[in-house]
Design a protein around this nucleic acid. Structure first.
Lengths: 267, 267
DNA sequence: CCTCAATGGTCTGATTCCAGACTTTTGGAC
DNA sequence: GTCCAAAAGTCTGGAATCAGACCATTGAGG
């Protein structure tokens, strides 16, 4: 177990052994299609749980100062035993992401603020995940978020849905600088969630996750924020107007911008 | 373990106990966003493996008469132990999906042909999965397949890619009736796979899977095939032309048609 | 100060899942 | 007919995971 000064860079490990990654080569059957024979599970329960909780923390689902649900409830939700959950929590505690307090009104408190990026962070993040995986993640995100926007723009929105969308939009626009990323995430995910499809929402969350570390590694600059604000507004407008094509185009442009920004910092 | 006359209807069960589903209610944190605290795993290793193999069989990834990879290799690929894999294989064997032969040139041979739908199959399939999940699946599929088409249409295609796409297209068009669904799947998944993003390909495969049972429960009718052929051609053309909006629109129309067909049969 | 409820901390026996070594069956090649 | 290689079938000890009972700590309220 390592314990570095910057939690964001600390890799979280624990009592379990690493899991061998499967080979990916031949295609089976006439179809030549899809590797359905990919690993059934991404890792052991402990690893997957750590990953999940880390995601919830980094995405700001549980922001700094808040606490995770009580162990018993969380274990039930995650579909794992309390023992396994506790191992994961301990790993995150030792890595500096959580502060665990006992007694009534105790709990696992999140102590994580997105670190201000330092030179070399991005390069390091990319190296960690691999160039191919980066392209994969960006492509995946483009597809699912465009799709989600299209779906939402196609649907008849209830007043409630419009409100939520508008609220999220102003949430990003009014965000304090160090809360910007979190509100940006909330806006993007709201589009998927409002579609009413849990599967789609999960896919978009997953896609976003795969680029959070990268985005956290580049500074949040004023001109970029302003540019993004215009694009966000365009996305929301197209959705509210019920124009699928425009919604999609707007999302595509926005994400293309982000991707370009990333590539720019990498070059 | 039950063993019914029609394998497609047989529910596959095994030695493990069912897993309790988690409650889904409160949203955590300010964001109010996404249930990242959903179950870490869908079931135990045995169940998930059965599911996977069944998917590979029903999607035609391993067609009738072919055999699965050898146990040792398959176990490695799926990231599980041979013991667990064997349990899953045995369950599928007892349910009538596999014929296992030992000795050299032996293996687990697929003995499954999509059954011709009988009245009530669709209703039953929907009841099994739930109305909400049906909507979820259709929405999800719409989003990811539209997104995939857009991505592919945006990319510069190599001659090789064009060939593959064309081949898959004629594959559907020339398909024998009882091979139609399989070739249709191959065409749809090819779009995702050609995007070069494994994540996207997996998402599209997953989406398709969630509706296979339903589609298998409705008859393949001549006029529908012809209609679909026109739409498939439009999709391929838009992609080759590099027109993302048209590609997406074409996919959306096509899937909307399928969804309408399903709803029609349900009414 | 005492009590209580909510929460984390600990322990135990049972079940699932694993890695790896070994056995048996089968059909082709010589 | 004999041998061999590739495959399924079997066994074992150990690690991971679970469910559930029980303990310890804490702060609020009386």
């Amino acid at each position: 177990m390592r314990m570095e000064s910057t939690p964001a860079d600390a890799s979280v490990s624990g009592p379990r052994a690493p899991v061998a990654s499967a080979s990916r080569d031949a295609t089976v059957g006439i179809t030549g299609v899809v590797s359905l024979l990919r690993p059934v599970r991404a890792g052991n329960a402990f690893e997957e749980t750590v990953e999940r909780l880390l995601q919830a923390i980094k995405l700001g689902v549980v922001p700094h100062g808040e606490k995770l649900p009580p162990e018993r409830e969380l274990a039930t939700r995650l579909g794992i035993s309390r023992v396994t959950l506790r191992e994961a929590i301990r790993a995150l505690q030792e890595a500096g992401y959580l502060d665990v307090r006992r007694g009534r009104y105790g709990g696992a408190f999140v102590v994580y603020r997105p670190p201000s990026p330092r030179k070399g962070d991005l390069r390091r993040a990319v190296t960690r995940m691999g160039e191919d995986d980066l392209e994969d993640a960006l492509t995946f995100r483009m597809a699912v978020e465009c799709g989600a926007a299209r779906v939402l723009a196609t649907a008849d929105l209830t007043p409630r849905q419009r409100e939520t969308l508008a609220a999220r939009l102003s949430g990003v626009n009014d965000a304090a600088p160090d809360d910007y990323r979190r509100m940006d995430i909330a806006f993007h995910l709201a589009i998927a969630e409002l579609s009413g499809s849990p599967l789609l929402a999960a896919a978009c969350a997953d896609a976003r996750l795969r680029v959070t570390d990268l985005l956290n590694a580049i500074p949040v600059l004023r001109p970029n924020i302003e540019h993004a604000a215009v694009q966000h507004a365009a996305i929301a407008a197209a959705i509210v107007d019920g124009d699928p094509e425009a919604a999609e185009r707007a999302v595509a442009e926005h994400l293309e911008g982000t991707a370009a920004l990333l590539r720019g910092f990498l070059a």
